[in-house]
Design a protein around this nucleic acid. Structure first.
Lengths: 336, 336
DNA sequence: CTGTTAGCGCTTTCAC
DNA sequence: GTGAAAGCGCTAACAG
């Protein structure tokens, strides 16, 4: 099965004329080895092209230096950023990332935890969609520590990082702060139980601004063409709004491009802000302001916590809540 | 480091009153074990919650049932589809996928191969950007088999899957076949050494159609707004084109939405086709026709070959070239 | 400072 | 059919 006849620590020891413990010390950077010996051994390692067999090492140390990243579906648009950030932290700590899709399928998801041991991993970062109660039970049984992203229950025996769900307020706040007074809404009224639309209505109220039904363009599909349609709609109002809060970035991009193709200026005439901060926000002219859900940050933090816990399982579990972050770009504030 | 005191094969053996060899036979489905014994052992396994230690097993068998997927950058937009397809095949074969980003950095990339052994993997699917010559040398030294995607050199000791680079011709062919005669081009003239633009020009020529400079809209950034601009430009021509070949899907989406917002019908008045077949093509109205680079297919094939090779290293290396696939959607052919 | 020794948990001949 | 025993390649006491 193996082409090249693997060279082992014994081969090195023999070739360098020392014992394998000495070789072991050297490859593990254990101090207290005579420089001469170290040199001889290193040369032998070099010559023979020796690389330690991780299986054997892990069998001894119980440390596999791998963690699993278990998410619902890799095709989820947030995944790349999450995985990228997670991988960076893992790499810094000399860990590798194993990828698992559980497809939001509770049984698969739980299987991930159950089989953790099968997986050559020391811990799992889990972006779960399961019911928290069920999850709690399973985490308790898992063979390795778990760090959770997003789904959370009081007594879960795991580190956790999540996001405060006030993105809508952050976006609205921004528009109001930059002096806009006739703010429109484009998007649906159902996403996340209507949270974004609710934020629109309530932000207006708490700033004593009038709610005007005609400033709401409802389109269920949060895609670019909904935004384009919204732009056309707003354009033909008697009084054009001076700002648009879009339920997500796709809509915001559509609104922005739509308004521009109708001859309006963004942000001078109309400011536009979206939510989610997808990469595309920076690929348009003007670049679109947005509210980031810090998915990368969550990945980073989850992996950090996990690795810390792998090093010391006795620490108290941490619960970290992040605030969505406003990213100001050209669609709301003219850049120099 | 481990919370739960791992239960081993010896514990099971003792509890079932058999030897560990018998337990081993049972967990590996070796035939020739008395049903009664099998039953007793299985019950013990169940009761104790035993799961075999993969490290120990691998140390013996040399099979880790993991493969690495090494790509330039997980944030590359093709990655999710590639990884998803790869993971499906891996899973079917009871393999897991480990993720490695090499950032198109040749040294990182080569390191991936060199450290293959360190990685608990039995093989590597590599999407390389390194110079083929260098790559060849390193592959020869790699401890495990490699399957290559995209980059290729005659004497590489690896299975390989790639794509024929005629996407442009496929797209043009489609427009011509559906009877369009006044075909415009939107995009840049430099991508892939200008291959797409060249395909435009040459396709016209080989069908004895006139090349008309005014039907070419050049925008370097292949993004949505370039498409919107192109739409405006074509709209104001004396004679509007009856089809647009866009250098990529983003431009095609922009062109389509732009034309529609100007009151034209797609595909009745103008047919639009893009290239790359990004997921967004199906998120717009009308859905955009495109040419797929079969990135998922390549991932699938690469993993399949790799797993076959892991099972038998002696087979001859395979070179597979895929043809880009036309995906007809609403932007070129009216759907019922 | 270095070598000897005893496993880690499992698979796999080889006997019985 | 089943068990005993010998490692897989490495680490980690423990001596010396």
């Amino acid at each position: 099965m193996e082409t090249k006849p693997k060279v082992t620590i014994d081969d090195v020891a023999k070739s360098a004329g020392v014992s394998k413990s000495t070789v072991s010390r050297i490859i593990n950077n254990v101090p207290g080895v005579k420089p001469v010996t170290r040199f001889k051994v290193n040369r032998a390692i070099e010559e023979l092209g020796f690389t330690p067999n991780i299986m054997a090492r892990s069998l001894k140390t119980k440390l596999r230096r791998q963690i699993a990243l278990a998410i619902d579906d890799i095709r989820n648009p947030y995944y790349p950023e999450l995985a990228w950030a997670a991988e960076q932290v893992a790499k810094q700590n000399n860990f590798r990332l194993v990828l698992i899709n559980h497809y939001g399928n509770p049984s698969e998801e739980l299987a991930v935890l159950k089989e953790a041991n099968d997986m050559h991993v020391d811990g799992i970062v889990l972006l779960s969609t399961s019911h928290p109660k069920t999850l709690t039970k399973v985490i308790k049984k898992a063979a390795v520590p778990v760090a959770l992203i997003g789904n959370y229950e009081e007594d879960m025996p795991a580190d956790w990082v999540g996001l405060r769900e006030n993105e809508g307020y952050v976006a609205m706040d921004h528009l109001i702060r930059i002096g806009r007074r006739r703010i429109a809404y484009a998007g649906n009224t159902t996403l996340h139980r209507g949270a974004r639309y609710t934020a629109y209505v309530q932000s207006l109220a708490s700033h004593f601004m009038e709610f005007n039904r005609s400033l709401v363009y409802t389109g269920e599909r949060l895609a670019i063409d909904t935004g384009l349609e919204a732009a056309r709609y707003f354009y033909h109002l008697n009084e054009i709004p001076d700002a648009v809060f879009a339920a997500n970035d796709l809509v915001a991009i559509g609104v922005t491009q739509g308004l521009i193709s109708l001859g309006l200026r963004v942000p001078e005439d109309v400011a536009v802000v979206g939510i989610d901060n997808i990469p595309w926000c920076t690929l348009t002219t003007p670049k679109v302001s947005s509210v980031s859900n810090l998915v990368g940050e969550m990945g980073r933090i989850a992996v950090e916590r996990l690795i810390l816990r792998i090093g010391d399982e006795s620490k108290a579990f941490e619960r970290i809540t992040l605030e969505p972050r406003l990213i100001v770009r050209e669609s709301t504030v003219k850049q120099i």
